[in-house]
Design a protein around this nucleic acid. Structure first.
Lengths: 247, 247
DNA sequence: GTGTTCCGCAGGTCTAGACCTGCGTGTAGA
DNA sequence: TCTACACGCAGGTCTAGACCTGCGGAACAC
């Protein structure tokens, strides 16, 4: 299969082709798209032949789909299409993605953006030293133009020089990824209910003391460094948090 | 490596040996146990030699550790030890377990237990036919003797004959497991904030219109059948929901 | 002093095979 | 009729290689 290889490499160099296991993944996704739950998929050896790749590559693709809950496999029997249950909340998404998944157009209004030294509490959450410089970004997040949540994010300033000079209206996660090569790999979230104070109620356009969903989030990159500590207050009447947990 | 193979197989047959990739995993876990964060691990080819396995097997082990957040890898540089964190996995726990994890003694006061036919809405949630018999169990859940949440659970009656005859003060999940051999394998949860009405506020011992965390949960067993559909209203001042999500 | 280029390191992708093991079924024996 | 065993299917594990690519440092050039 040396020719095949040469073709792949050449294409990859031109940036016009993706890894084979991702191609197989797409192929299988297209297959299961028209299949009812619990339908038997072609066996791994067959898929390998169809896609002209080795079985190991097929297995890599299937593994990723299993992790996504799209398919499941039973030893000795085969691989099957999963029940089509919307399992949102498992994936780590930005506000923008989250809104788009709900068929809403995300928007943003910057309320504040400043830099100041960290207090004891904030330093503990961000795992930095008290007094280290920290960015504070506060935004009113909109869905189809209507207020959805008030979001306050704090980031350690040192790893992200001149962050506040960028456009802060869009996805912060995207900015961190494109400008600073930092991805939030893990997030610890605390969810609780709160009554809105006057200011936040006004911002969200609801009466004071209305209930809100408070999500405190600590974002951690793949190296285990804390990159953000944020707090979001969602309008209770417009937002709920969905998640599916297993075992 | 045919001898090695024969040994492995013989041992596996006797049930005295685990898969090699799991052995490698343990090996690496032992290594990183004495290492500070961001320490460089031996390279994959070296580990393969140390453990006398192929590089693919090493990679399988490392992959599982990356998914667990124990290590991270940087292309072209190597694999490193992650920051040490206690990641409270997204485990499916009962109220009782949940409270014990918070060092609180779980309790319960039965408010209602009855059987009635399912309406359209409830039937849809439980994936049964309208009119099918359904148990309704309402309980005030206590932590160290103080009200923590009001919980309403509905279960299809058919799979659980004489459920209401049992003691309903303890863990319902435990009852389902011990008496009916049914385990909730998956749960879909919707979390939102609510203002408490008069009745529930009284039950929880807070002023009316106080905010509460509402958790609606659909429990599904390993065969994909809906086992329960419940709704819990937690006192916002005493409860928050923690979860860690990975990308 | 400051880019720029080159090179080596180490992880990422992929192959073509081999063998193991759980599961279901079909068939033969009790 | 029912149990037991044999067989085949299909996923699970593993090997020994090959080549790609991002990263960082060193050597070189301006």
């Amino acid at each position: 299969m040396t020719d095949q290889r040469a073709v792949t490499q050449a294409a990859l160099q031109k940036g016009k082709m993706v890894a084979k296991h991702l191609q197989v993944r797409e192929h299988v996704l297209a297959l299961i798209d028209r299949m009812p739950p619990d339908t038997l998929l072609p066996q791994e050896r067959e898929l390998a032949e169809q896609c002209e790749v080795s079985r190991a590559t097929v297995r890599q693709a299937l593994q990723s789909l299993i992790e996504d809950g799209r398919i499941y496999s039973v030893r000795g029997r085969g691989t099957f299409v999963s029940q089509r249950r919307i399992s949102k909340g498992l994936t780590l998404t930005s506000f923008s993605d989250d809104m788009r998944a709900r068929d809403l157009e995300p928007g943003s209004r910057l309320l504040a953006a400043k830099q100041s030294p960290a207090g004891d509490d904030l330093a503990r959450h961000l795992e930095i030293r008290a007094g280290d410089p920290v960015y504070h970004v506060e935004r009113l997040r909109l869905a189809d133009g209507f207020p959805m949540c008030v979001e306050t994010i704090r980031l350690p300033a040192t790893p992200f020089p001149r962050l506040l000079d960028h456009d802060l209206a869009g996805s912060l996660y995207q900015l961190l990824a494109s400008r600073y090569r930092t991805t939030v790999a893990t997030a610890e979230q605390h969810i609780c209910a709160r009554a809105l104070d006057r200011r936040n109620a006004d911002l969200l356009g609801v009466p004071p003391r209305s209930p809100a969903l408070q999500v405190r989030r600590r974002g951690i990159d793949s190296r285990g460094r804390v990159v953000e500590y944020g707090e979001s207050l969602y309008r209770a009447d417009r937002y709920d948090f969905e998640l599916t947990i297993h075992r």
